[in-house]
Amino acid sequence: MSEPVSALGGVTWADGIAQIAEIGPQGMITLRGDFDDPEFRVAVKNAVGLDMPGQRAVQMSGENTLCWMSPDELLVLCPYGDVAAMLAALTSALAGHHALAVNVSDARAVFRVTGPYAREIMAKLTPADLAPDAFKTGMFRRTRMAQVPAAFFLRETDSFEIVCFRSVAQYMFDLLKTAAQPGSEVGYF
């Protein structure tokens, strides 16, 4: 078995107004199905150990996170090594249902932006409303960051996690570094 390699090899940067790190490899499973189907909900609960997240929200517990991607799509974040087992559990629990579970771990890159200015750095790059009372811990948003699609959520106060396509990982890292240049505080939030 070959060693998994994340997009940027876990690069970190802390010379600016926030800490930026590529975290990974991160296990990721795309899960599509009918959210209104009770059996789908039970299958997800049993396999991932988390309740269904509400609209544009995440459920977090331990190392697993369940993200709401769209009205028929979830994203499971779990340790890289757990993907195969979780995928097998999901596939067998959802057999016979109109549902799909796919391992997308190596197709994406994950970043973490941490620090008191994390919210400001994100707000510089996305059209999403990141006012503290509009975007709170546990909320999830799929949007655009500069020129690339991205999804992010607030894992805890001042700590954003960003998921983007692996092919744009370097762009995303450069973008975050630029937005976090020393002296670039705006002080809006």
Partner: peptide
């Protein structure tokens, strides 16, 4: 109407 976001044109 699907995700409930007030999305601006660039999204």
């Amino acid at each position: 109407p699907y995700c409930g976001v007030d999305a601006d044109e660039t999204e």
